[in-house]
Design a protein around this nucleic acid. Structure first.
Length: 894
DNA sequence: TGTGTGCATGATCGA
DNA sequence: CGATCATGCACACAA
């Protein structure tokens, strides 16, 4: 009979040889120990021993940390294969140093004839049934009914792991037992080697084990897939789990770790240096903890060995068990996939990984495929069309009709769907896991020590990127606490049922949610997940109700956005539009109003946030978002809120319309416009098409938001609003529909006008160069010329360093607006200093319109109007017009 | 005009 | 370099 103690076969080199087999067949056995079945899945990547240790989560996770000898409690560094620590895996879980193991082995050998006296048999009943579920589980290539296998070996590993652990145990001794090999044989029915996996046929031995094995393993066994018990023994002897603060490098799957079952305490070890490019999941780091979400090689299937790890379902045994319990069936995780935008889109087509489709879905020869009933984790039945398209001499498998299901589960791009199978019956189950902003943790209640972090939403390929290589476990925890909460998922039900292999994935948050407020739905918005995870810039999503007040409209935002004061923009022209480009992002600034005094000087007005008094500022002053009189460093006399305004509020009221008033008025007018005109975007477009170059009353175009773009108004002729609703491909170049014709007309006009303006600019620039080099910019000029000159000077780099941003209270969005340009315009216009006389110049408007390709005013109107109110702004031109006009009208009336 | 469907293309990744 | 897959594109069809 065999020994309860056997040394895990080492076969470092055989491992190496075995690695490539993962993609091309995995039947190669360890020539030294005969291990095979587990290897093929347990070992994922041949790149390094580290990766081995990462992925060989059953065999080698224990080798990568500091553990204690079960017998003498001496720390042992188990550095996977590169560590030459001498240790031995105990079939009853745990690791022992060679000396202890030797003695125990000896004792065991003596007890062989008395199984009850064996070490393993001293375990509980469960252990009796599954006594040897250890990481060093003995696997045999085949299990003869009469004899199991043999082969125990003392691990010989190189001490010099590349992830040197300062805590490296000096006590680890090298003995001459490195190559010690003990062969053990098991008699039939010997259950002391339950992990001896019979590769192809379920044996009674396995049945015995099932109760003690995770569902996963059970399933694997059911599958008789030689599916490795990668998860180790989930049998529940997990009462001794590593504390959350303990971080054992890598691969300590909770249940997987026999050590835990044995009550072994894992000592924290240093994290191995992250290996760039290692395609391992974050879980490999978190995986040291209980219930780590380790990507599991899927159950058997055609081509399973070629399944990319990214598709390996990541589910903890616990989750799996729970799911199985929920479904009252054995659930076999098959594969998972992160939903792409296409998958989650309205098309309703979920692209299936080819290997997965071919491995786990019914074979189809007809491109039409076949209907595939799938049950979701709630028990709903769905029928998808499983089919394929020919693609590059290959096939592209898709599930069609998934939209209802996706929506029902409230999934979006970035979330993960997990296909599992219910046995018996083979029914497919589609679970899901929300992309919880890349952080999720395990059930705190059920696995108090676990703090697994999964790369939710980034599970696509390992997800190592989500964990900074240098981040410590504490960092991780911190990140969990400080980071995840706001967006950690959601729907408890989903969390419980939906997040795992059949959707049963529980984030810590989820569990907490469950615990605290079960069935409490979360806002849909919170269930949204970003799709792109990676290097792209991200913004904290503010979608919940608490943040509603933070939401700004587009124009409001632009009211606040200022170009960085120290940055010189690069002026570019895109499709006729002059655009400022900044290397730095805009900053938030306080809205001000730029005026021209009677003397022709420029002045900027800002309102104190405390007393609401208006203060005069230099035109180039840039204010922070919050500004008070006390910060008025330019006018010491009025650096206090107690000092009255230079101009009365009444005087200021009209021209310097504070934002609120302005907005109210604007809103009111807009409302009127909406009521009066209420043209749809299409109507406006049609009008534009009809009127062509003719003037369109801006007011008519100022009404409510279009259906396409809430920030745009009917009549908005921006490219967004006028584009065919169905996007590309709807209109041919020769299309003569109204939309196309109007667009053509508009662009034609834009081109012509742009060309004309460009000529004017050039002429002006030349003239100015010749005659007016030293002219003060404040000196009056022709209206349009001045601006053109300004622009030109900008192009020549003559721009004043600060693209100062005056912002009007109107909140106009005019991104390409310089303060000095505005000032120049004002100068040129010789505007009155009297604020009450401030007007909005349609010239400016028209300039803006011209620059933006909008043909709202004819040239006569442009030339005839002047204004003195310069709403220095990042202005949103489209709303600018009606508002200004309204203001002007009001002023005129007054 | 909107939606569905099938295919093509290009980026990405792994061998 | 080839396979895979996300996504775009064009056509068909229905409303």
């Amino acid at each position: 009979m065999g020994s309860d103690i056997y040394m895990n076969a080492l076969c470092v080199h055989d491992w190496k040889k075995g690695w490539p087999l993962r993609s091309g067949g995995f039947a190669q056995l360890c020539t030294k120990c005969g291990f095979m079945e587990e290897w093929k899945h347990g070992i994922l990547d041949p790149l390094s021993a580290y990766e081995m240790s990462v992925f060989c989560d059953k065999f080698h996770r224990q080798k990568t940390g500091w553990v204690e000898c079960k017998f003498c409690n001496k720390p042992i560094h188990c550095g996977c294969v590169v560590s030459r620590s001498l240790f031995e895996y105990l079939d009853f879980d745990g690791i022992g140093c060679v000396s202890c193991v030797a003695s125990q082995l000896h004792m065991q050998m003596r007890n062989t004839e008395n199984p009850n006296g064996s070490i393993s048999s001293t375990k509980n009943n469960a252990s009796d049934q599954h006594p040897a579920h250890i990481d060093g589980t003995l696997f045999v290539d085949s299990v003869d009914d009469g004899k199991l296998m043999q082969l125990c070996r003392i691990v010989e590993a190189t001490e010099s792991s590349h992830w040197n652990n300062p805590q490296r145990d000096s006590t680890i001794s090298r003995s001459g037992q490195n190559s010690q090999e003990v062969k053990c044989s098991l008699g039939e029915g010997d259950t002391r080697f339950p992990n001896v996996i019979k590769p192809s046929v379920q044996s009674p031995t396995f049945s015995k084990l099932e109760n003690n094995r995770s569902t996963w393993e059970i399933k694997n066994i059911h599958e008789s897939t030689a599916q490795p018990s990668l998860n180790g023994n989930p049998s529940g002897n997990s009462n001794v789990l590593p504390s959350s603060g303990e971080f054992v490098d890598g691969r300590l799957d909770d249940k997987a770790s026999p050590l835990f079952h044995q009550g072994q305490r894992f000592r924290p070890i240093l994290r191995k240096p992250s290996k760039t490019g290692i395609s391992m999941d974050l879980e490999t780091d978190k995986g040291t903890l209980s219930h780590a979400r380790i990507a599991r090689p899927p159950a058997e299937g055609r081509g399973k060995s070629q399944l990319l790890p990214r598709y390996w379902p990541r589910i903890t045994d616990q989750e799996l068990e729970r799911l199985s319990g929920d479904l009252k069936s054995t659930v076999v995780p098959l594969f998972e996939k992160v939903l792409s935008a296409s998958d989650a889109g309205r098309i309703g087509r979920l692209v299936l990984p080819k290997a997965c489709a071919e491995a786990y879905f019914p074979p189809i020869s007809n491109a039409d495929g076949l209907p595939l009933p799938v049950q979701d984790v709630k028990g709903n039945e769905w029928t998808f069309q499983f089919r394929f398209w020919p693609n590059n001499n290959s096939r592209m498998y898709v599930l069609e009709g998934v939209t209802p299901c996706i929506q029902a589960m409230q999934l979006c791009a970035g979330d993960t769907v997990i296909f599992s199978r219910i046995d018996p019956g083979g029914k497919l189950v589609m679970g899901f896991r929300k992309a919880s902003n890349s952080i999720d943790t395990q059930d705190a209640s059920t696995s108090a020590h676990s703090n697994g972090i999964s790369t939710k939403g980034t599970t696509n390929s390992g997800g190592t990127e989500n964990l900074p290589s240098g981040s410590s476990y504490a960092d991780i925890l911190q990140s969990i606490k400080g980071n995840g909460e706001p967006h950690l998922n959601g729907h408890p039900e989903h969390l419980r049922l939906g997040a795992g292999a059949a959707g049963l994935l529980n984030t810590e948050n989820c569990e907490k949610t469950n615990n605290h407020s079960p069935q409490q739905p979360i806002p849909v918005s919170e269930k949204k997940r970003t799709r792109n995870i990676g290097p792209k810039s991200k913004r904290l999503r503010i979608d919940n109700e608490d943040a509603m007040e933070l939401r700004l409209t587009w124009e409001e935002a632009h009211d606040l956005l200022r170009p960085p004061s120290s940055v010189q923009p690069v002026i570019v022209t895109i499709e006729g539009q002059v655009i400022e480009e900044y290397e730095e992002p805009p900053v938030f600034g306080k809205r001000t109003i730029l005026c021209v005094c009677s003397s022709g000087g420029k002045v900027q007005w800002a309102q104190c946030d405390d007393c609401s008094k208006w203060r005069r500022l230099p035109v180039d002053a840039v204010l922070p978002p919050k500004w008070t009189c006390f910060e008025n460093v330019w006018d010491a006399c009025r650096s206090s809120c107690t000092v009255p305004e230079e101009v009365s509020s009444r005087e200021l009221a009209n021209p310097l319309i504070p934002n609120k008033d302005f907005k109210k008025r604007r809103t009111l007018e807009n409302g009127k416009s909406i009521k009066e005109h209420e043209p749809s975007g299409l109507d406006a477009l049609a009008s534009a098409a009809v009127l062509g170059e003719n003037l369109i009353d801006p007011a008519e175009l100022s009404a409510g938001a279009t259906t396409k773009h809430p920030r745009h108004r009917p009549g908005c002729t921006c490219i967004v609003c006028i584009q065919p609703p169905s996007g590309k491909g709807k209109h041919k170049p020769t299309c003569t529909c109204n939309v196309c014709m109007s667009v053509k007309r508009r662009f034609k006009t834009i081109r012509l006008r742009k060309k004309r303006r460009q000529s004017e600019r050039e002429a002006d620039a030349a003239a100015k160069k010749d005659h007016n080099h030293g002219r003060d910019k404040s000196e009056p000029n022709g209206t349009s010329k001045s601006k053109d000159n300004t622009i030109h000077s900008e192009k020549e780099g003559g721009l004043k360093g600060q693209p100062e941003v005056g912002v009007s209270g109107a909140g106009q969005v005019y991104l390409n607006y310089y303060a000095n340009r505005a000032a120049t315009q004002m100068d040129i216009a010789r505007l009155s200093m009297s604020i009450n006389d401030l007007e909005i110049t349609n010239h400016q408007v028209s300039e803006y319109m011209n620059e933006n390709g909008l043909k709202r005013f004819n040239s006569e109107v442009q030339a005839s109007q002047h204004s003195s109110l310069l709403t220095q702004s990042n202005g949103e031109g489209k709303e600018y017009l009606p508002v200004l006009k309204g203001e002007q009208s009001q002023n005129n009336l007054s």
